[in-house]
Structures are given as C-alpha cells and as structure tokens.
C-alpha cells in the first residue's frame, strides 16, 4: 500500500518525461534548413494573411475531415496522389502552434494544397500572380459551394464566409463567377468576406515540398520483403 501513491505518480511522470519532455527538448532545437547553395531558408514563418487564415481553418473545424501530413510511400498512396513530393517531417511544422496534422481523411490531405493545380490552370509554375489568382478563384467557389466544382462532394458549403450584396454600379472585381444554377438573384453578387480571403490565403500558402535532408523524396521502398510497395 505504501507504494500506491508513488507508484501511480511514477507511472504518470515516466510517460510524460518520455513522450513530452524528452522529444520536446530535442524537437525545440530544430533550426530551419538553410540551403548551402542558394541560402534559401525553409520553412519560413508564415505571417500576415496566411497566418490569420489558420485561425479561420481552426475555427471551422477543417481539421475534423482534413489531415495535413504526407506519409511515406510505403504507408499509403499519399505521394502517388501528389499530395506532396515527399513525406512530411517535424521540421515542416516547426513554426506551427498547434499543428493541424489531423487524424481522419474524409477529404483529401491539405499539407501541400497550395502547390496543387486544383483550378486546372495547366501552368507549370503556380507561383505567378496569374496562377495564384486563378487558384484563389477556384478556392472561393469551392468554399462557397463545393458542389459547383465537384458535384458529388460531401464537403459542407461555407456560405457565411461570403457576403451577398446588391451590385452598386460595376460588379465587384472579386465577385464570384458562379454558374447560373448557383448564382444569386439578379442584381446581387457574392463576394468573399475577409475571413474567406484569409482562409484562401492560408490554403495557398500550404506547401511542404521543399527538400529536406531528413525527408527523402519518393523512392521505392527499401525493404521489399515487407511488401508495402507492392500493395500500394
């Protein structure tokens, strides 16, 4: 009996030291990766609109249905689906608090959604202003009602991120270009609220494809005897 309280305290503390404190000490010492050739720094601490969009992402519970982690090729089809060019590692998330890894994929992974050509621009370089504009417009429409671009999607519509207002004079530059079946009543237009702009800014900033020494790019599985590569 005299061992009871010390025992349960020890059980708790050993678990905490081993799983939180030890890894925390190691992981908090990670530095951004500096490319020796280009002096490029990765990851960068995203500020401004993209960071505010994170709050919108959290507030609407996107993490309930979307993960943000790309697994190695032998763990699933993540890389084949081009959700990223390599598995994600701890360094990718070093500035995020809390991280939005997620545990359930009702919808696709979003770790690298900013680098995916969802709008079908067909451009090799999605970082140009024109491509970004096209992608942003696709995301606005998709958030306004996913059924417009993907008829069988079960994603909820996020209409409260948009404003339906009367057209005064010219139609607004950022008004959504909706197909007739989804368009507002004549004389009205749908424009994104600041929350939608933040959220889309955040989504477009998501890109974890920069190469890192601890994360190999897609490569055949090393241990063929486990058969992971074959069952992909």
């Amino acid at each position: 009996m005299k061992y009871f309280f010390p025992g349960i305290l020890a059980a708790f503390l050993i678990g905490w030291f081993g799983q939180i404190l030890l890894p925390y000490r190691a992981l908090s010492r990670i530095d951004p990766f500096v490319d020796a050739d280009t002096n490029e720094i990765y990851p960068v601490n995203v500020a401004g609109i993209a960071n505010q969009g994170r709050e919108v992402y959290i507030a609407n519970g996107c993490v309930s249905c979307h993960t943000q982690q790309v697994r190695a090729d032998y763990m699933g089809g993540d890389l084949e689906r081009n959700w990223g060019t390599r598995r994600t590692v701890a360094r990718d998330y070093m500035y995020e608090n809390p991280v939005l890894l997620g545990t359930l994929r009702v919808g696709p992974d979003l770790a690298g959604v900013g680098a995916r050509d969802l709008a079908g621009t067909g451009e090799a370089d999605l970082t140009t202003a024109a491509s970004q504009e096209k992608l942003a417009r696709w995301h606005y429409i998709h958030l306004y009602n996913p059924r417009i671009v993907s008829p069988d999607s079960n994603m909820p519509a996020y209409k409260w991120l948009f404003e339906e207002r009367e057209i005064k004079g010219q139609i607004s530059l950022n008004a959504l270009n909706l197909p007739p079946a989804f368009a507002p009543k004549p004389g009205y237009e749908i424009v994104p609220k600041p929350e939608a702009e933040k959220l889309v800014g955040y989504l477009l900033s998501l890109n974890k494809n920069h190469s890192l020494p601890e994360a190999k790019a897609a490569a055949p599985a090393v241990s063929p005897q486990t058969g992971g590569a074959a069952t992909k």
Binding site: A26, A72, V89, A90, K216, V222
Partner: peptide
C-alpha cells in the same frame, strides 16, 4: 534519433 521519421529504411 529525433531526425529519423521513416522507421523502415
């Protein structure tokens, strides 16, 4: 090691 993520290779 804290920089090893793929247990397999």
């Amino acid at each position: 090691r804290n920089d090893v993520f793929s247990e397999r290779d």
